[in-house]
Amino acid sequence: SSGGDDGGATTCEDTDACNNGETGDCEFVNVGWGNLQWPLSTSVEAGSDSEGIYGQVYVDGVSGSANSESGIVAELGYGTDGSTPDDTWTWVSTSLNGTSGDNDEFGGTLNIADANTYSYSYRYRYDSSCWYYASETGTITVNALITYDVTFSVDMSVEGVTGDIKVRTSTVDGEYNPSDWFVMNDNGDDTYSYTLSLATGVTYGYNFNDSNGSGYESGDALGDCAGGTYGNDRFVTP
């Protein structure tokens, strides 16, 4: 940027000019320092949220106040292993996690679909379009999700059949997260089956449904064979 004198008034040609944290006549105040705080390496299964990843930033007279509306923006991003952080990386927003001295600390997670090894880091900006990139980069290993085909079967010879017989997973590791209902295949002998691909090491609750009333199986007579909120969830861990 450049300044000019016009009767004592200072003008700027580039209002988006970057600096290193100093306040100049023709520059926006920008970030003085920022880092990737922790961790410097981590691993996660493909398609799952990583552990929390944190970074700290200093802006003179602004950071250190734990003010989520201070105007400081922090993003967590990842790119090809060994690459330098820039706009070609994938960036996600983070949230203020607290303070450390005069620094603000931000935290976020990464969710990466494709198994591989990636580099990750933080970038920051304040009152400017200019990003300050942390000098530290971490390494995240994204492991392929291992799945197994699990076949669910139900015998309707006693209950009788009304409409479609369906199955779904209802919980994932104890959290309610229902899948779609899947119409089961008629095996021709009053039994029905359907195969789902499920992740290994995850506990799924599942239940059946027909078209009689609400369609849900009562849990009253299932005892220890089932559980969940309504007592009609069975469980499987591939």
Rank of each mutant, 00 (worst) to 15 (best):
G3P: 00
T10G: 01
C12Q: 09
E13N: 15
D16F: 06
A17W: 05
C18I: 00
C18F: 03
N20K: 06
V29F: 00
V31L: 05
V31K: 03
W33R: 09
N35Q: 13
N35P: 00
N35D: 15
Q37G: 02
W38R: 12
W38M: 03
P39W: 12
S41N: 15
S48A: 14
V59Q: 04
V62I: 15
S63A: 08
S63T: 15
N67G: 13
E69R: 12
V73L: 08
G77L: 02
G79I: 10
G79S: 10
S83P: 00
S83H: 01
W89G: 10
W89N: 11
T90Q: 14
T94Q: 11
S95R: 09
S95F: 05
L96G: 02
G98P: 05
T99N: 02
S100P: 00
G101W: 11
G101S: 10
D102A: 13
G108N: 09
N116S: 15
R123N: 08
Y126T: 01
D127Y: 06
Y132K: 03
E136T: 12
G138Q: 03
T139R: 10
T141E: 15
V142N: 06
A144M: 01
V150F: 09
T151P: 12
S153H: 01
D155W: 04
S157D: 13
E159W: 11
E159M: 02
G160W: 04
G160I: 02
V161F: 05
T162G: 01
T162N: 14
T162D: 14
G163V: 12
G163P: 11
G163I: 12
R168M: 11
E175V: 15
S179L: 02
S179K: 04
W181Y: 14
F182L: 08
V183R: 11
N185S: 15
D186Y: 09
T191H: 08
Y192E: 02
Y194T: 05
L196Q: 07
S197Q: 14
L198A: 05
T200H: 05
V202F: 06
G205A: 07
F208N: 04
D210T: 09
D210L: 07
S211F: 01
N212Q: 08
G213N: 05
S214Y: 04
G215M: 03
D220H: 01
A221R: 07
L222C: 07
C225I: 02
G231A: 12
N232T: 08
N232E: 10
D233T: 00
D233A: 03
